[in-house]
Structures are given as C-alpha cells and as structure tokens.
Design a protein around this nucleic acid. Structure first.
Lengths: 157, 157
DNA sequence: CCTGAAAGAGAAGCTCG
DNA sequence: CGAGCTTCTCTTTCAGG
C-alpha cells in the first residue's frame, strides 16, 4: 500500500469543491454538475474518504440557535512548560473551544471560544484556563460579527 | 409562519450533537442512539433544517491533502472607513480566507487564512489585502499546529 | 468509467397508544 | 406527540464489462 496519497485530478477537486459546501447532495446531483456517472462519483468519494482527504461529514449549526451569542478569541500564554501537556490534552474536552492553534510568536495558543454570555466567558477563563489548566496569562478579543465563517478550503488545480 | 424559532428539547439537542459530528449517519442509526424511531428523527431533522438551526451540510477536507500547509491569522486595520464596504464585500470571493470576524478592540478584523506557502501568504497580504482592499496595516501570526479545529458547537440543555 | 440490478434510505401517508 | 407500518421514490452499493 502506498504511503503517499494519490494525486487528486480535476474531477476529484470538483467533487471536493461541491461536497465541502453541499454535503447533502446526492451522488447523482454531483455527477450531473461535473459530468460523471453516479457510480464514478461514488467510487471517487469512497476513495477520498478512504484516503482521509475527506475526514468527516458534518451538519453546520447556527450558534445563535443554541444561544451561543458570544464569540471570543483568547490568546493564551503558558509559562511553565510542564503545564503544556495537560493543557493540550484537555482542550478536546471543552465544547466551548471550537479551535485551538499553537502559534509562533508572543502567545502560545489561540483559542476560538463560543459561549452564551460574558459571565460565562469570564468563568471559563478564570476557572478553567487559569485555575485548572495553569494558563499564565490571556488576552481576549471579542468578535462583534462574523463576515465569513466556514471550513471550506481553497480547491485549485 | 412563526418568526420565533421553536424551542429545542433534549432530543433535538441530542440529534444536533450527533449530526454535527456524524453528518453521514442514517436516521436509523441516529434513532438507535437516542431512542427515537426513524420517522421521528426524520421529522425533527427536517424541522431543524427548515428552522435554519441546521444551516448546511459539509464534508470536512484535510487541508494538507490540498497542499494548504500554512495557516495564518491576519489582524487587519483599515483606517479609511470608506474602504470597509469594499473589504467586507470582497471577503467572500477569497477562497483562502476561511474566516473573517469583525473585532472589538485595536484591530478591525481577524482573518483565518490558508495558503500553500509563505510566498503565497506574502502575495495575498501585499497584493490583495493592502493593494486591492486598501488595508492600512496587518499583523500576522503563523499557526504551527492545530490542536483542535472544528465547527462543532457546545450543545447543552 | 459505464451499465444495470439489488439493497438501502428517505418522504409521506396513515392509524394507534 | 411519537411509534409503527406501508408504499413510493430516490440513492447508494456492487456486480461485471
């Protein structure tokens, strides 16, 4: 078995472009758009999933419908290096953390956090990040509005 | 038609929790997990979509499979207010921009950008953001690694 | 990559607890 | 309100060329 991933041809890219925006379209619909038979689309999608080029399928939910009206970006600094493994291991457990990226530069991590209220954000930062996870310092920025918020990637030849 | 959205009960939340992580599961499978019949699941999901509680379905693609090896967060400052409508209108056109949030604080916007190389990032910032979109100043941070990167939301009663 | 047949899932109807 | 059941339709899956 090849450890290198197969190259993606133009039709694979066209499929990826469609499914990342319309994960609910039938293979027939996709095939119609890009000029492929249903089973060809089926074969390709199956290969892309086996490849792990497609890693998952998901429904996108409106945060407001769940009362998650506050979006914040929290920069995190952790001074003591022994606190880092605990921190990275715990991130997955927090449903309010949508993203956690390890950064180059002044701060260690950038968190994208969704909560209901500022009180909840305050509690999350104080009790969870600082108290439990031994975060040294944080710098938080509130998002007023999201112009764009997708996971769709740039699909180009 | 009611403009107010219906309240979500515990089973709606359970469905949302499942479909935001497993958008490809059949209604039968979902029903099995939460103790509902296929048609009950069917009805509820349909209502959640009509509601716009579920806004879309999507396949998640591994950025590395598309050669998008560089993730950067670009803080944007726009001094001249007349440049803002052009900026916000153009954001949607750029496939390399995954997210654009309007911020409270020192910077106007935070962009989450995925490109192939640092050269591409440089070109994007200089030619697109600064030259075309009249961005005054930028501050860019590179992500070394993503501990977590999901759109799944905190689903709680 | 296609055709063609079989299995499976979703949608809509209904009746019954 | 949801379960259960039937029927129809569309989709997915799997031969085999």
């Amino acid at each position: 078995m090849p450890s290198t991933r197969n190259e993606l041809d133009a039709k694979d890219l066209a499929i990826l472009e469609l499914v990342q925006r319309h994960g609910d379209w039938s293979h027939a619909e996709i095939g119609r758009q890009i000029g492929l038979s249903v089973s060809a689309v089926n074969d390709r999608i199956r290969r892309l999933v086996a490849d792990k080029t497609i890693t998952s399928w998901a429904a996108t939910i409106d945060p407001a419908a769940l009362g998650l009206h506050l979006l914040a970006f929290v920069n995190v600094l952790i001074d003591r290096s022994e606190a880092i493994p605990t921190f990275t291991a715990a991130i997955g457990e927090y449903a309010e953390i949508q993203e956690c990226h390890h950064l180059a530069g002044e701060w260690n991590y950038l968190l994208k956090v969704r909560v209901r209220t500022t009180a909840e954000l305050e509690r999350f930062i104080s009790d969870e990040l600082k108290a439990k996870l031994k975060v040294t310092r944080t710098f938080t920025t509130i998002a007023l509005d999201s112009i764009k918020d997708t996971h769709a990637l740039s699909v180009r030849p």
